[in-house]
Simulated scan of single mutants.
Amino acid sequence: MQATLRIIGRHGLDGVTHRAVATQAGVSLGAVTHHFGTRDVLIEAALQFALAREVGRLRALALGLQGKAFEVEAWIDALVDFYVSELSQEAETHIACYEAFLAAARQERYRPVVAEWFDTWRQSAELALKAAKSPNSRRHAEVFVSALIGLLFRQLATPRASFRREAKAELLELVASLIGRK
């Protein structure tokens, strides 16, 4: 699955072939075609794998913060630090995620995977914003997730050394305005 995600991150969905995945993964072509009969099954399995990974990490982050006295700044710090690490180590996987978003815009079969992804992001943010006393945690979570996705996409497209500092400041400012703190 990682090999497929790397290919998607480098070449888009069109770059995924059984042969390319086998080569990238260092396994036989027969093994890939046996487990994933069609290219679409292979792509969907890779996207589901990425989703499960992201969902698990977001939930672990939310639960880790839930057990402590909630502080918005600690949540933003942990979230941004998590993504700084992710983007430096797994950029191609995250680029593959954005490819999945585009694929869902074009093809309905990818929409359930992407919808679950967004829902998990929203649920995680909603938990944090509810703890921060947001008057409308669900709507505010939607706005927060949209901003976060945009910041991550911008960093992938045009990397900046100041990303950590700027993203933390921008997200803190957003949350403060959403929950009515100055």
Rank of each mutant, 00 (worst) to 15 (best):
L63T: 11
Q89A: 12
V72L: 13
G67Y: 02
I95V: 14
L79F: 11
L65V: 03
E54A: 11
A62Q: 13
V55T: 11
I95G: 03
G67N: 04
Q66L: 12
A45V: 01
L58V: 00
E44S: 05
L87G: 06
V72M: 14
E44L: 09
E71F: 01
E86V: 12
A91N: 07
A91F: 04
F82H: 15
A69K: 14
L61Q: 08
L51V: 08
A45L: 02
F49Q: 07
A60P: 03
H94M: 08
A50F: 05
A60T: 11
K68R: 15
L87K: 01
A100F: 02
Y98K: 01
I76F: 00
L51F: 09
Q48N: 14
A74W: 00
A52C: 05
R53S: 15
A69P: 01
A91C: 02
L42P: 00
A50V: 00
F70N: 10
F49G: 04
E73S: 14
S85K: 07
E54C: 08
D81C: 07
L79A: 10
L61C: 08
A91T: 10
E92M: 08
F70A: 09
L79Y: 12
L42Q: 04
F101M: 13
L51I: 07
A96G: 11
R57H: 12
V55E: 15
A60W: 01
L47N: 08
L87E: 02
I43Y: 01
I43R: 05
I95E: 10
E92R: 04
A91I: 02
L58Y: 11
L58H: 11
L61G: 05
L65M: 10
T93K: 07
L87M: 15
I43N: 03
I95P: 00
A60Q: 12
E92S: 09
E44A: 10
I95T: 14
W75L: 00
L47Y: 14
K68T: 11
L61T: 12
V55C: 10
Q48V: 09
L63Y: 03
S85H: 07
A78P: 00
E54P: 14
A69T: 12
E54S: 14
A69C: 01
V84D: 07
A96R: 03
L79G: 01
R57G: 12
L47K: 02
E99T: 10
E92Y: 02
L65A: 09
E73C: 04
E54K: 08
G67V: 08
G64T: 04
D77M: 05
L61F: 06
G67K: 04
Y98L: 12
V84G: 10
V84P: 15
A91S: 15
D81Q: 06
Q66K: 13
A52Q: 10
G64N: 07
R53D: 15
Y83F: 15
A52W: 00
F70I: 03
Y83N: 15
L51A: 09
D77T: 12
A78T: 05
Q66Y: 00
A100H: 06
A60I: 02
Y98V: 04
V72P: 00
T93I: 09
V72D: 10
L58G: 15
F70E: 04
E92C: 07
V72R: 15
R57F: 05
A62C: 05
V84S: 07
E92T: 10
A69Q: 14
E92V: 03
A50H: 13
R53W: 00
S88N: 10
E73Q: 12
L65Y: 06
Q89K: 08
E44G: 01
E92W: 01
